[in-house]
């Protein structure tokens, strides 16, 4: 089991210029912001279930950037069909990292389906994303970095982490229009 916040920070340390990062509602957005403010980040604070299709649209429109999504198991379970859509309309520059704490931590740590019988790696594989794997310890770091920057996507990584609530770290703005415009300004047209 991984301590997610320092792990996210480690992945984002010395990030390359061509990386753009999206995070889903819940702890993922606070984790992303904890790694430091960056115009190349866009964090969801609502619209549960939309971060995966958003990341697909972004990856399609910006093939010259590497797109990395951090999101939770709960957010992912709300849009499982979008994984099939990605598999069938592939994008080589997209990596999805599911920070799977087997619970809806943001709302009081109720168990999700992955605490029971459900395996997101297998769902992604069954949906048609071949490059799908699970990381259970810090040793997976090197493999993840290779996937994020080098491998042909789409890739789907399940990071098993502790179901522990962490302090909220707010983004630059809670106003979506401010966030998205700032994010868009970080990319060349």
């Amino acid at each position: 089991m991984i301590e997610r916040r320092p792990f996210v920070q480690k992945i984002l340390k010395n990030r390359k210029d061509n990386l753009r990062v999206v995070s889903g509602i819940g702890t993922s957005t606070w984790d992303l912001m904890s790694a430091g403010d960056n115009v190349g980040n866009f964090g969801f604070i609502g619209a549960m279930g939309q971060s995966i299709p958003f990341a697909l649209g972004l990856a399609k429109a910006k093939p010259n950037y590497r797109i990395l999504l951090f999101t939770g198991d709960g957010d992912t379970l709300m849009s499982l069909g979008s994984i099939s859509t990605i598999a069938n309309h592939p994008v080589s520059n997209l990596t999805m990292i599911v920070l799977d704490n087997e619970s809806y931590v943001e709302t009081g740590s109720q168990p999700t389906a992955t605490a029971g019988k459900t395996d997101l790696e297998l769902i992604a594989k069954g949906s048609g994303i071949n490059n799908s794997y699970t990381v259970k310890s810090e040793e997976g770091y090197e493999k993840i970095m290779k996937t994020v920057y080098e491998e042909e996507g789409p890739s789907f990584i399940v990071v098993k982490c502790k179901p522990k609530a962490t302090p909220l770290v707010f983004p630059h703005s809670f106003d979506g229009s401010v966030s998205i415009n700032r994010f868009m300004s970080s990319m060349n047209s």
């Binding site: 866009f42 619209a47 299709p53 697909l56 649209g57 990856a59 990319m187 047209s189």
Partner: peptide, 12 residues
């Protein structure tokens, strides 16, 4: 909806 918004963020 999400797809369309992500694409727009990327200029499409």
């Amino acid at each position: 909806v999400g797809l369309s918004c992500g694409a727009y963020a990327g200029g499409k």
